[in-house]
C-alpha cells in the first residue's frame, strides 16, 4: 500500500546505498538489541529496510517508527560485519536529523533527564559526545542526533535523574538482577564478568546450550555496553551475593567510542580500595582491556582470572 510520501532531506542521499544492502542479515548477529530481544525487527537490517520503506513511502511515519530509529548503542559492529559496506549508523543518523525536523525525538535508547534534575551540570560536562546542554527556561536538553547512548550521564548523575528509556537489558537494575540470579542459581557460580561489548563475548551467541553443559558454570558474562556505565553498586552487588570475584572487560584506550574505559578504571580502582579496607583481597576485582572482536583474548583473560579466583577460594 502506497501512502503519501514524507520528505526526508538527509536520508534521501542514501537511497542508492540502501539498494546495495543485500539484506544478507550478517549484521544482526552482532547487534546487542537483537541479542536481547531476538526480534529481527530490532536489528540493523530492519533499520535499513525501514529507511528504504520511509523513502519509498511504503512505511508510514508514525511515533513507533520514529522510536525505532532512535534505538542504537553505536557499537558499530553491524558496519564492521556488513558484507556490502553499508554505512548503517550514518544512514540512521541522517534519518534522525530528518525525524527531529519533523518533530520526532525518540527517545528510544537516547538518554532523557527527569524533572527532578538538580541542574548540577555534571552530565553536561561528562558527555563525551557534546549531546547535553543547559538552556535557561528549559533545563537540560539532549540532542537526540548527538547522543550515542553510552550511558555515562546516567552513571554520573548524583540523583539518578537520567535514564535511557529503552535499555535492552543494560540498565543497572536489570544487570544487578541477572548477576544475583546467576550467583544464586547454582553451587558452581563464582564470578560475574561485566563486558562492555558483545563482540568479544566468547560464549555461543544466539542459541542456548543444554542444561547439562552449563550446570557447572562458574561465571556469567553480562554485557553492559560501555565501561563508562559501571558504577559502584554494580561492582558491589556480586560480592554481596556470594561472588568470589568480579571481572570487568572494557575497550582498549584508543578503541572506546565514548572514552568509557577511563571511568571504568577509576571505579574498579575505588572498589579495590573498598575491598582492601574490608580486608578482602583487592585482586578479586580485575579490569581487562579487550579489543573489538578478540574472543580468544577474552576467554584467556577469563581463564586466568578463574584460576586465580579458584586459588583464593570464597570470601570468608
Amino acid at each position: 500500500m502506497q501512502i503519501e510520501k514524507t520528505k526526508f532531506e538527509n536520508l534521501e542521499k542514501w537511497e542508492g546505498m540502501l539498494a546495495k544492502c543485500i539484506r544478507c542479515g550478517y549484521c544482526y548477529e552482532h547487534c546487542p538489541m537483537f541479542k536481547y530481544t531476538r526480534w529481527e525487527s530490532d536489528a540493523p537490517r530492519a533499520k535499513n529496510i525501514l529507511a528504504h520503506g520511509l523513502l519509498t513511502g511504503e512505511v508510514e511515519l508514525t511515533p513507533s517508527v520514529a522510536e525505532k530509529s532512535f534505538n542504537c548503542f553505536f557499537c558499530k559492529r553491524c558496519e564492521a560485519a556488513c558484507s556490502s559496506g553499508v554505512k548503517i549508523t550514518d544512514i540512521m543518523l541522517d534519518l534522525r536529523r530528518d525525524l527531529v525536523k519533523l518533530g520526532y525525538y525518540g527517545p528510544g535508547t537516547t538518554s532523557i533527564t527527569d524533572r527532578s534534575c538538580a541542574r548540577c551540570l555534571q552530565c553536561v560536562r561528562a558527555c563525551p559526545h557534546d549531546a547535553r546542554d543547559f538552556i535557561d527556561g528549559e533545563g537540560i536538553v539532549v540532542d537526540p542526533v548527538k547522543c550515542k547512548s553510552c550511558g555515562i550521564c546516567v552513571e554520573i548523575c548524583p540523583i539518578e535523574a537520567i535514564t535511557i528509556p529503552l535499555s535492552f537489558g543494560t540498565d543497572k537494575v536489570e544487570l544487578e538482577r541477572r548477576a544475583v540470579e546467576f550467583l544464586h542459581s547454582r553451587e558452581s557460580a563464582k564470578v560475574i564478568m561485566y563486558a562492555c561489548n558483545w563482540s568479544y563475548h566468547p560464549d555461543i551467541q544466539n542459541s542456548r546450550l543444554p542444561e547439562s553443559e552449563i550446570e557447572e558454570k562458574e561465571y556469567e558474562i553480562l554485557v553492559n555496553l560501555c565501561g563508562g556505565r559501571i558504577d559502584q553498586n554494580l561492582l558491589l552487588t556480586p560480592f554481596l551475593n556470594q561472588a568470589w570475584g568480579v571481572l570487568v572487560g572494557v575497550c582498549p584506550d584508543d578503541e572506546c567510542n565514548h572514552n568509557g574505559q577511563e571511568a571504568a578504571k577509576k571505579r574498579v580502582k575505588r572498589m579495590k580500595e573498598t575491598l582492601e579496607n574490608l580486608d578482602i583481597n583487592p585482586e578479586r576485582i580485575h579490569l581487562v582491556q579487550i579489543p573489538n572482536g578478540d574472543k580468544q583474548l577474552c576467554q584467556a583473560e577469563i581463564d586466568t582470572f578463574m584460576e586465580k579466583i579458584n586459588q583464593m577460594g570464597p570470601i570468608r
Partner: peptide, 16 residues
C-alpha cells in the same frame, strides 16, 4: 507476538 506494521514490514524481506 508482533503486529506493528513496522515489524511486519521488517519481516517482509529476506536476502532475495
Amino acid at each position: 507476538i508482533k503486529t506493528d506494521p513496522l515489524d511486519l514490514y521488517a519481516y517482509g524481506a529476506d536476502a532475495s
